[in-house]
């Protein structure tokens, strides 16, 4: 498989009053054509910042640097080249469908805008494409919808419009930043099914950002777990869920309530402690203050371990609990 997106040593620094916040601390990964990569982690682990950094949408206070940031043959660190890819081959949908559409323009205008800009052609052709895309994402009577304004649509419909808008230019990579978090549970399931169907039908690669591991198990080809701005473990969905090597991954998985297994009325699983401050440098493993298996040498530099496509960063060669189970 060919790498569609190559990220090498991505860093994002945000200047704050109390010092420089290292929101993303040297992230490296690839996304292959047609696959779904899920980036998981708690709030504040840097997963959304990562997606914005890839798209070049960081706020002005944030500084991005990377040894390599390539989309196919395009160097994304060059702003001029990046803009031709952004909104064209590489598109993004967001967490808040209620506010992501401009209230002042009919959705037809917003749907056709990027298409006309990147692909050119007549307004009639763009309109026809918009109708086709609205139909594809399961919106009824698409032609009439074009003249409607965002406030006339429900949250679920707006997220469908956002997806249709992203698909207008026939992209190769879709970045979805918690696209279902703001929606009702039933609508969440619909949108998720829609994204999975579209991904299979159109063969586009998806970076799916979420904090919901239960959801990850349903859609991911590969999973990257992030903690405190860095990768702690990455592997195929089977590797991550079947044989998690990092204590943090294992703790996250243990927090998923499971029907039949999780005791009714019992408190849900949690990970004690809070995410460390990312201001200044983090020495050693950032998770060690919350880790049940931490050793004193966790404060020193921690090795990156690999087994085929499975990578993790931990002092332990295998998950410590698993080692004791099997021993």
């Amino acid at each position: 498989m060919t790498a569609l997106l190559t990220v090498d040593d991505l860093k994002v620094d945000i200047k704050t009053r109390s010092g420089t916040l290292h929101a993303v601390r040297g992230l490296s990964f690839t996304v292959n054509a047609g696959e779904t990569l899920c980036i998981v982690g708690e709030s504040g682990c840097g997963k959304s910042i990562t997606s914005l950094a890839l798209m070049g949408l960081l706020p002005r206070t944030a500084q991005r640097s990377a040894a390599r940031l390539r989309f196919g043959d395009t160097d994304l660190t060059d702003a001029r080249h990046a803009r031709k890819v952004r909104g064209n081959d590489m598109v993004m949908i967001f967490q808040e469908p209620m506010t992501a559409l401009n209230p002042a323009f009919p959705i037809g205008d917003q749907l056709t805008e990027a298409y006309l800009y990147h692909k050119g052609g007549t307004k009639a052709a763009a309109r026809a494409r918009a109708i086709e895309m609205l139909d594809l994402v399961g919106i009824g009577s698409p032609a009439e919808r074009l003249s409607q304004f965002p406030h006339q649509l429900s949250g679920g419909l707006r997220q469908r419009v956002m997806i249709a808008m992203a698909l207008m230019t026939d992209p190769k990579l879709l970045i979805a930043d918690e696209p279902t978090t703001a929606l009702d549970v039933t609508i969440q399931a619909q949108i998720l099914r829609l994204l999975r169907d579209l991904q299979q039908k159109l063969g586009i690669a998806v970076i799916f950002i979420t904090h919901d591991l239960g959801l990850v198990s349903r859609i991911a080809d590969r999973v990257m777990v992030m903690y405190a701005g860095a990768m702690v473990e990455e592997g195929t969905a089977a590797e991550i869920f079947g044989a998690p090597r990092h204590p943090y991954t294992r703790a996250l998985i243990d927090c998923i309530p499971q029907p039949g297994k999780t005791e009714r009325g019992a408190p849900l699983g949690t990970i004690a402690g809070v995410v460390p401050s990312l201001i200044g440098t983090v020495q050693g493993c950032a998770f060690r203050t919350r880790c049940a298996f931490a050793r004193t040498d966790c404060a020193a530099s921690v090795p990156e371990r690999a087994e085929g496509s499975h990578r993790w960063i931990c002092i332990h060669a295998d998950h410590p609990a698993r080692m004791t189970e099997t021993a």
């Binding site: 909104g87 967001f94 401009n102 209230p103 805008e113 990027a114 800009y117």
Partner: peptide, 9 residues
């Protein structure tokens, strides 16, 4: 919605 517009390139 401004972020969305920027995301369109």
């Amino acid at each position: 919605y401004v972020r969305t517009a920027r995301a369109k390139g």
